[in-house]
Design a protein around this nucleic acid. Sequence first.
DNA 1: TTGAAAGCGGTACCAT
DNA 2: ATGGTACCGCTTTCAA
Lengths: 338, 338
Amino acid sequence: MNIYDIAKRAGVSIATVSRVLNHSPNVSQKTRERVEAVMKESNYTPNVFARGLGLNSMKMIGVLCTDVSDIFYAQAVSIIENNLRREGYHAILCCTGSEMKSKKKSIELLLSKRVDAIILVGSAFQEQFDHSHIEAAAKKVPVIIINGLIELPNTYCILCDEYKAVFQTVSSMLSGGCRKILYLYDTQTYSGMKKLMGYQDACGAFGIPYEQQIIQKVPKNLESVTQIVLESRDEEGRFPFDGVMASEDLLAIGALKALKGKKIPVVGINNSVLAECSTPTLSSIDNMLLSLCTTSVQILSQIFEDYTVPQKISYNAKLIERESFHPGEVNSPVLTPD
Amino acid sequence: MNIYDIAKRAGVSIATVSRVLNHSPNVSQKTRERVEAVMKESNYTPNVFARGLGLNSMKMIGVLCTDVSDIFYAQAVSIIENNLRREGYHAILCCTGSEMKSKKKSIELLLSKRVDAIILVGSAFQEQFDHSHIEAAAKKVPVIIINGLIELPNTYCILCDEYKAVFQTVSSMLSGGCRKILYLYDTQTYSGMKKLMGYQDACGAFGIPYEQQIIQKVPKNLESVTQIVLESRDEEGRFPFDGVMASEDLLAIGALKALKGKKIPVVGINNSVLAECSTPTLSSIDNMLLSLCTTSVQILSQIFEDYTVPQKISYNAKLIERESFHPGEVNSPVLTPD
DNA sequence: TTGAAAGCGGTACCAT
DNA sequence: ATGGTACCGCTTTCAA
């Protein structure tokens, strides 16, 4: 069943059918109704491939993330997909993993599928040196980067100022009496480095010498984190820190588990469900994923409509207070053994 | 840059270029190399729309779930996407929400995009009565249903026997001494009903009368669950149950929070990260998502290769023991006030 | 308002 | 092994 069949049955030309299909105003009411009736009774669906061939678009957007099973990315993808569909686009999802080769290949495959744009979710797509693949992609379609900063033509970055958020949070921990704050992180992405800098600069601002900045890289795995934190205790079972800032909720919860209810402030980042699930509940920095993702899609539609859009948009994060840390509360500077 | 340009530059016909593109053996080594060289230097990418038009396929699979921000579905989608891509397919993701209308529309849209197959993730796609949309879809492309059972031609169901798992788990709670087990659930999907039946039948098998089966529907929201469970206490602060089975980890954690360390066995379902994050850690029924999803994609490729495949495949679930419940341990039949 | 016809860029069958 | 050519089904321009 194609446009020719419909034309024949309705007694018009294919051009007219096409006009009806595309809601062209240049069709008489009568003709339109007749054609539409035929289409309905024939159960006709236009062939998107043929249409795509003519228009060079199938209204599909490539959405990449390293791993949707990560609840943070899942949340992002969810929001993006919903917004895209509202705008009449479909999302092709690609979970690339963190290997450069795989990321490159996914982008190439997506481009070969002639997607209308590419959205990169997460700063994991910000490589240390080589952005040639992104540059190449941006030559063909607009590239949106969520939480990464790559300044290239036809590339648009939507970010959250996590540096500032961490800086402020660590600062308020320090002004609450903390002196040795453990910083836990897992990956060295762009976003990861920004957060770490926030921690370091806050420590610096409060005159905490570098030797007292306890920076610990850990695997993204609850038990490992707990283990590592437990092992950091001295012979008398004392933890060498009096506060914990973690680059992501899971790590913070690992620390909470090691602390077993001990009153040491702990803060995570992402404000995920995990934060609510832990006991005590975890205070966490909300990095405004909803805003970031919603904006991304907005920017995209504006690009498609040929508006001029900013190449970089930044949001502020905000701390969501839960049981594990209340800014303003003064913490005991004295550590008790376990 | 199209196949004609390449043909011209390489001094061959488009037929030959097409053959090179499709790795046809009927091309001389020399010609092949020449054409490939031209393609490379021209930076040529075949147009998938044209190809799709001819082959009526763009190697894309529609993957539907009600909500990827749900970590369970996110996990599923992640596994499916990875396996699909390995097979040379791309996944178009559609988060439909739970409204029938939206589900139907999503399926229609996907079909209009001429996907090669549809994968429905989760029994939320199993409606009470009307499966006409799925039937219609199955007339065009194979439909795979994960964790739902809809017996229709060209429809393939991959499920996990959650009934049995719940039956066994509740049974072992009962034989451990529990007498009044609270059952928490949120949605009445197919899978949801199966789980509930597992609970009821186990109670029945142990001679627990219906009046002592405490079945509570709750919103899928941590605080609400905790609140509701807390409110179930009598004037003396005693909980009216001595065990908790929940249809999903989040609900179980809500209960754990209400119990505040009280020694009452609690079990969830899904075996998600949440189960590890809670304190105490949550024993949970693993519903073999990895197997289900991997199998789905396998089945799909077999269908594409014209193999005969089973229409229904069922896996056993298994209980993952953590702190909140150890089968075999005898629980105190005496309840203490809070 | 309508129709005819030329693309769009491939695939695949039939000759040679 | 290679070329010619008829599709695939739609959009769009040009004429009428």
